[in-house]
Design a protein around this nucleic acid. Sequence first.
DNA 1: CAGTGGTCTAGACCACCGC
DNA 2: CGGTGGTCTAGACCACTGG
Lengths: 254, 254
Amino acid sequence: MDFAFSPALAGTHADQPAPGQSRYGWLAASLRARITQGEWVPGTALPAEAALAREHGVALGTLRQALALLVAEGLLERQHGRGTFVRAGLGGASMLRFFRFRHGGDLTATPTSTILSRQVASAGPETADAFGLPVGASVLELQRLRSLAGEPCLLEQLWLPLPAFDALKDSDTATWGDLLYPLYQRLCGVTVNKAEDDLRFGLLNREQAALLRLDAGHPCVQVNRRAFDLTGRCIELRTTLGDAFAFQYTAQVR
Amino acid sequence: MDFAFSPALAGTHADQPAPGQSRYGWLAASLRARITQGEWVPGTALPAEAALAREHGVALGTLRQALALLVAEGLLERQHGRGTFVRAGLGGASMLRFFRFRHGGDLTATPTSTILSRQVASAGPETADAFGLPVGASVLELQRLRSLAGEPCLLEQLWLPLPAFDALKDSDTATWGDLLYPLYQRLCGVTVNKAEDDLRFGLLNREQAALLRLDAGHPCVQVNRRAFDLTGRCIELRTTLGDAFAFQYTAQVR
DNA sequence: CAGTGGTCTAGACCACCGC
DNA sequence: CGGTGGTCTAGACCACTGG
């Protein structure tokens, strides 16, 4: 019946889709694995459709369905006439989308970042669970303040799992720049692919208020973020605080 | 039953896609028009793929691309082995997704609704702009209180453009039920297809606080919603207030 | 069972990009 | 210009749904 003239990438996947599994779904999984294992570095182009289709012994349309899945997942990006590229990852300043801190109408401004503290800590139950580590495992804990035009606007505390982010333990924070995700990429080879933000309302305690130059008990928005790499593993926990009266967010329904 | 495969609706669309316009894009536009003009009522099934493809003189794959567009738009819904259906529209209780008012762990509970006031008002500049009406045009203004287990939780004020919602001016509010969108559908033939919610923080004034049984000056979340029908026209403006300390929202970042 | 959408093929031609 | 992805075709077979 079926001629398997596919040249068998040995190891990770079977030569045939599991029964009940569509061919393009299986193909997508196969490509996903090759991407997350670093065969194609973020930013580089995949082989052309025709080549990939031939390589996997599959029709063009089928291969295109597989690629469409990975595009929808945020793993790939296609450009007409140029090629299919592994996504570079999230930029960074996206916290600002929750607030209207525009000063002088500049919406694209990146806040400057000041690292307030850096220490190795042991993971509490929540952190350990998110990272898939045992309770008490070592994690890197950072606190930083982000400012626009010299005005502090966001106070952040964040945790990173530790074998993976060892490179940040001793590196000079003065060289870090204002965005962390490109830093993760550069120093740790970690690509942040997607994130989940949980929004709540609260009141600032005395220390938080002082750092943000607000009054103790001032209303604030707390954004709890979990960021994930290409494989879907959680690689950052972050808590961001900002003035509730600067909060503004738009959500689409359906 | 009439099998009128005549392209009946002359005038609205050319027989050929405009140059530079893809065939499936043009086809989608054509189907979109037939849907929004009521040829197929929300909830009903479209003709089968094969029939539609034949009717438009197009290959199956091309027709499927067109349908995929309309599905992504939220206009259609496909069910394997059953058919392709015009979406019934938004349900209604979706305001609750911003809050954690779960009482007794019941997350699917629909709050009961009490209409506090109903009056014909004249549109201010903002309302008029949203509805595409002249300033001063007649709009219906409603205020209602929504409660869970007898506890008031959401205070809403909303505006509806008036020729379209005439049926609500005199109808007995006791018969309205707890959800408005199904009511719009039933009494006014208006299908709410999508909406845009804008979130902000504020403080309750005395009257608002009293209705929600909170203190004046209590922090609150204000959700400003603009709802749209199948054609993309804005057909509802709504402002919802709820206790800020019950606020909780999750957003995906990609 | 007949009818629906879902998958897949093996071609063709077009539109875009960069050299 | 050659190479890329985007559109389109005309079939085939599979998987699910309902009577």
